[in-house]
Amino acid sequence: MKRENDLDVVAPDEVGTEAPIVEKVYGITGHTKHPLSSLLINPDVFTFEEKAQQEKVLVVARSHWVTNVGWILTAILMLLAPSLLSLVPFSSDISTRYKILGGFLWFLVTFAFIFERFLSWYFDVIVITDRRVIDIDFDNLLSKKFAQADILMIQDLTFKVTGFAQTMFNFGDVFVQTAAEVPQITLERIPQPQKIIMVLQMLKEELGGKNVK
């Protein structure tokens, strides 16, 4: 028997699964507040090389911004260092040409330091899609680490928040035990680890339920 078109709108046979999952993720984590946020929910622009065509990126997590404070302070000191040169004895004896060249090199090295540290924060990401959880790490140019586990293969989820900074700013490590080839994926220093665990649990229940049908 042919169904009426209107009936498909009111009570469709096939319920789309994507939108309700996104809504549930929003319900757990809230919405992203800033494009450079450590936690991007349902990002529009973000994608990665190994992403399947129909795969939906739900959460992208980077290390909490507080983890950047150390190198930012170092960078500020590096930027201020040339102005302290006048305090060094005999600094007035250094010829101007060396000061110009040395100063230029110093600021170039400082820029490279800031840039490298930012890159390693920006490109080390944890991605949660509607199918899997992925850890992408770049230690340096010649090293890329890609670890993934299917959501349905997740066996156990634990998190660890230790120390003053992690407790104050609510970030920590999430350990994802899997039945896959990679036995454990560690999501390091990510914000709101409890909520990330809740998202993974919700996805596991959703996907598990879908499979039973």
Binding site: P35, F46, F48, L119, Y122, F123, V125, F138, N140, K144
Partner: peptide
């Protein structure tokens, strides 16, 4: 390095 990283992870 930036080109390789950008190819792998695309963001804003």
């Amino acid at each position: 390095q930036v080109q390789t990283m950008s190819k792998n992870v695309k963001d804003m």
